[in-house]
Write a protein that binds this DNA or RNA. Sequence first.
DNA 1: GTATGATTCAAACATGCGTATGAATGGAAC
DNA 2: GTTCCATTCATACGCATGTTTGAATCATAC
Lengths: 240, 240
Amino acid sequence: MRMNGTGATKDRILDTAESLFMEHGFEATTLRALTSAAGVNLAAVNYHFGSKEELFEAVLTRRLDPMNQARVELLGRFEADASPRPLDSERILAALLIPALGLARDRERGGKDFLRLLGRAYADPAPFIRHFLSEQYRPMIVRFKAAFARALPQLPPKELSWRLHFIMGALSYTLAGTDALKLIAELAPNESADDEVLLRRLAPFLLAGLTAPLPPADTVARRREASPRALATVAARSAR
Amino acid sequence: MRMNGTGATKDRILDTAESLFMEHGFEATTLRALTSAAGVNLAAVNYHFGSKEELFEAVLTRRLDPMNQARVELLGRFEADASPRPLDSERILAALLIPALGLARDRERGGKDFLRLLGRAYADPAPFIRHFLSEQYRPMIVRFKAAFARALPQLPPKELSWRLHFIMGALSYTLAGTDALKLIAELAPNESADDEVLLRRLAPFLLAGLTAPLPPADTVARRREASPRALATVAARSAR
DNA sequence: GTATGATTCAAACATGCGTATGAATGGAAC
DNA sequence: GTTCCATTCATACGCATGTTTGAATCATAC
């Protein structure tokens, strides 16, 4: 055993890795830059974590595991409160977003960095990252999908899967954001309240998408519903 | 001048790069793997493109530029058709999605690869990539934002910016997809019709989010509107 | 047919990477 | 105060990377 001054080497590595992986990505972050920024020896990463990949997984697990657990717990609590009536999709969505919001807000250091890192990990093509994330998320996703299915019985399961996919996309992209914001617009200088405001704006957007009317039934649109038909119509018309 | 057999070396490099960058990302794709897969000499990349980064930009420009141009042109055509009435947001959204759909469908080879590559480039932290994409997209985004602002005059500009951000997020995440699909659910074996089906499911989702009711006005929700209030309420209640 | 200039090629360059090693270090246990 | 063992450290290993070089190759123009 050992009891160092304040922060154990291991934690210092995790914190620095979280920040650097977020900023530069996994591949572009070198162990030399990482250990030098953390003020530890180069060999410390391999000593404490085994390899760079295992370090990355440790960085993710440290926060992802509690966050997804909190999501499931919150969902259970909401369901108990609403019992015996089924929980409405608005609160299910809330159970999905609130722990992410809490992570962004509560931990003064690193929390927001982590969410950006997570958003980027989502899009990373490295097989070990994709596999790891998939394993980490599966139980949570299965649980929420079942809850949404109860709340939206008229929505076909396949459609629900797609919309959950879109939701996770908008969420992770948004959390990964920062520079991307500049791409869309000049969002004024009030980036202060950011994350809370962000999720309060994201929630209605996602809820509306989740409960949107169904798309046209078949490959060629037969029905004459108002809203979702036009895209197909217009697409056909624009064929040159 | 030179006229090689069939495909000039330059094009062969571009095609292979598109596929490999998509599959492994920018950093993890080595010039040796790339040139060997393309059947060209290792030095050919530096000879024709100058550097790996410039090759990446060339890969992106080759398709991104025409796609965004097509988006703007299509928007203009729709606006002319609708004149003098302002174009509804549904068709504006269609002008945004259809060229992406066309790219995924028309070019038998590479089109879909490119969209996945693009979705991944969105999330890549490399500064030169972010800067490049931002420059490539700005004119198109500005144009569409103005069109949406006309179609949705009741929506505050800042709110519109956010929702455009969410839209681009769901879109790029969806286009980058494939493996991510497995994460959400077992989408059955009919991945056949994929891309067209995908966008026809995505469009109603995005349209509903875009036209969703406004979130609560202030930091603390004052009004008693039905739908978007609950998240804030519930969040406060769940504070432990 | 020879000169020209663009392209291809094999080989090397310098550098940086993740990882491994073996000696130093220092607090805890006896 | 000596033993012990987890940790730290400087250093080196082996290798792969992006890039450069200078000669070989080829179609074209004269």
